[in-house]
Simulated scan of single mutants.
Amino acid sequence: MQDELFARLAEEGHPGLRPQHGAVLGYLDPEGSRATDLAQRSGQHKQVVGKVVDELEALGYVERRPDPHDRRAKLVVPTARGLDQMVRSDAVVEELERRHAETVGHDTYAEFRRVLREVTELQRGWREQG
Rank of each mutant, 00 (worst) to 15 (best):
E12F: 01
R88E: 00
G125M: 08
L17S: 08
M86D: 01
L25K: 02
T79R: 05
Y61G: 01
E31M: 06
P19I: 10
L75D: 02
A7K: 15
R65W: 05
H100F: 05
R114F: 12
M86C: 02
Q85P: 00
L28C: 03
M86R: 01
G32R: 11
E63N: 06
Q44I: 04
R34S: 05
P68M: 06
V77K: 05
G105A: 08
A101T: 09
E102K: 12
H45L: 10
G125Y: 08
R18S: 15
G22V: 03
K74Y: 12
G13W: 00
A10V: 02
V115R: 13
P19F: 08
R88V: 00
L5E: 04
F6L: 15
T120I: 08
E97Q: 13
R127T: 13
A7G: 05
D3S: 14
Y109D: 09
R71N: 00
H100W: 08
T120Y: 08
K74R: 15
D29H: 11
E102V: 06
D54S: 12
V76H: 01
A39R: 10
L122I: 07
A39W: 10
D37R: 11
G125K: 11
Q47G: 11
R127N: 09
L96S: 10
L122S: 08
A58N: 04
L25P: 01
T108H: 11
T79A: 04
G43Q: 11
E128H: 13
